[in-house]
Design a protein around this nucleic acid. Structure first.
Lengths: 300, 300
DNA sequence: TTTTGCCATAGTTAAAAACTATATCAAGTG
DNA sequence: CACTTGATATAGTTTTTAACTATGGCAAAA
């Protein structure tokens, strides 16, 4: 098996016919024919049913293609990572829960790098995808938190995926409310205080980072539950409906505007925010710098 | 880049010297030297520092190796899946939460297959790993549940990973208690009923499948919390301490013995148990049969 | 020194993968 | 019904790639 062979069968499957695929791959049709047959012989499988009117994937072939795509996806990462370099294009990918300090550090790193050609990705997503992104090297670093609930599970998962967790700081859970909410007068809030008000949370989409935070509350504690898709909508409802939402309290004021305020939530829980890295990989220069910026932003 | 080149650099990195690696790979040393240099040239990187006394990985090389291993891991899956076939060794892998029907179906499939050479894996693990296993084809099928809390998040994750969810049945959350517990007289239980008793849950390890179930309860509702590592210990405590644990209620009696009983939990929540499959892959014969058995076991 | 244990280079050979040309086959077409 | 068309397969050839052998250079160990 070679990567080429895998690329070939994927292209053939996409094109639905060997001749067209050969044209697309800039090789002669017989070359493609033999390449495929050799792969089939090697594993003693039939990937395509041939006929004079094109080819058809067998179910066996369909299964094989799934595996092939996985290999190609990983191989593509290498090309993207190391071919970009030649063009002087700097690349950097972070997957993080929705923390403003992570975004700030990202922006600062981008400024510092001073590159004129770059491809930077800031992936704000949920815990599962953060771990998956870093484990499969789609991102070089991930930022997430551990708390009483998820700690054991997350740590085991990190171990299973050969990832390390390095704590940055401990955060207290905060409640975000509108500045005119009746709760705004209190110094800190308890879950009891929140009971009468509607709880807001994200439903899905890229801003689903509060998922694990939501575990701090349960339905039993919450009669009014609002689930929204959009960040701006959530903020509107915080203000308009005296709603609340719970998160780590590290979202800064500039990002939210003056109408949203944060209050400490009195609850027997902690949030330890840190970053995850693949064990097997030495962090790149950019990654190390990013970590330094993270530290300087959070150690104060 | 070829798979061979990647294998070569991994072996060289392991051996720490090109000559030894060449011997291990059954090729001549100059072949290996050029193969590596070609890879380095292709991506314009330096993977190894050469000296007359062996080689040394550069930090760049260390990073590259991480990527290389990912590709090789995926490629290995193909070899294992399709080379095993020649030896007549049947292979089947399931990742599931801890449901007895999943195990029963697994055992039945194994019996039915009648193979004398096989490698079957029953991976009882947590939600994240189930999704990850199936997404990366380490398992051909996964079994998990959706409920009000995790549904949106899980569904999005499944979509992101090109997985489909097919429901098998809806289960009512059940409380497991000792048969002599004061709660045993009640027909069904509410969260209110449970408040005075210690709640038991798994902490980690392979039996951590109740993780998401635990979300049904929150710390606020539970003053006494016991976390154990072992299933048998948990059952002991259910009986000895009048404790309880919540799960899907599909664990059968034979598995638990007569001293543990299940009671319906009255709570505004559901558990939809189903299986996940990769979109891109046509399920294998064994997988289809497993699904049939699952259906026959759960549809009654 | 000399030997030993590395990696690198040069030149050669064998194997793999491409190419061109052509065969085969069946469905659509005048 | 022959003919064209559009597909895959086969044969033979050429190019490219990846091995091989032999040898050189270099520094640390003997």
């Amino acid at each position: 098996m070679t990567i080429k062979q895998l690329q070939y069968i994927v292209t053939v499957a996409e094109e639905g016919n060997i001749t067209a695929a050969a044209k697309k791959l800039f090789i002669a049709q017989p070359s493609l024919t033999t390449a495929i047959r050799e792969l089939e012989t090697e594993y003693n499988i039939t990937i395509f049913m041939r006929s004079n009117k094109g080819i058809k994937l067998t179910s066996e072939g369909e299964e094989f293609l799934g595996y092939a795509r996985q290999v190609l996806e990983q191989a593509k990462l290498i090309d993207e990572r190391y071919m970009g370099k030649e063009s002087g294009k700097l690349k950097f990918f972070v997957s993080a829960q929705h923390y403003s300090f992570a975004v700030e550090a990202f922006v600062e790193l981008l400024k510092k790098s001073g590159a004129d050609k770059y491809e930077f990705h800031m992936r704000e997503t949920q815990t599962f995808n953060i771990i998956d992104d870093v484990a499969h090297l789609r991102s070089e670093i991930g930022i997430l938190y551990l708390n009483k609930f998820n700690e054991e599970v997350i740590r085991k998962t990190l171990r299973d995926n050969n990832l390390t967790f390095t704590p940055l700081f401990k955060a207290q859970p905060h409640v975000f409310i509108g500045k005119n909410s009746p709760l705004a007068k209190k110094k800190y809030l308890t879950l009891e205080d929140l009971k009468p008000y509607p709880r807001l949370s994200y439903e899905q989409g890229s801003h689903n980072s509060f998922y694990f935070s939501e575990e701090i509350l349960s339905t039993v504690d919450c009669d009014k539950e609002l689930v929204v898709l959009d960040r701006a909508t959530l903020f509107n409802m915080l203000i308009g409906l005296n709603g609340y939402t719970i998160c780590s309290g590290v979202i800064n004021e500039e990002l939210n505007g003056p109408n949203i305020i944060a209050k400490k939530l009195k609850v027997d829980d902690y949030m330890e925010i840190g970053y995850i890295l693949p064990l097997s990989i030495h962090p790149s220069h950019l990654t190390s710098e990013y970590i330094d910026i993270l530290k300087s932003l959070t150690k104060k």
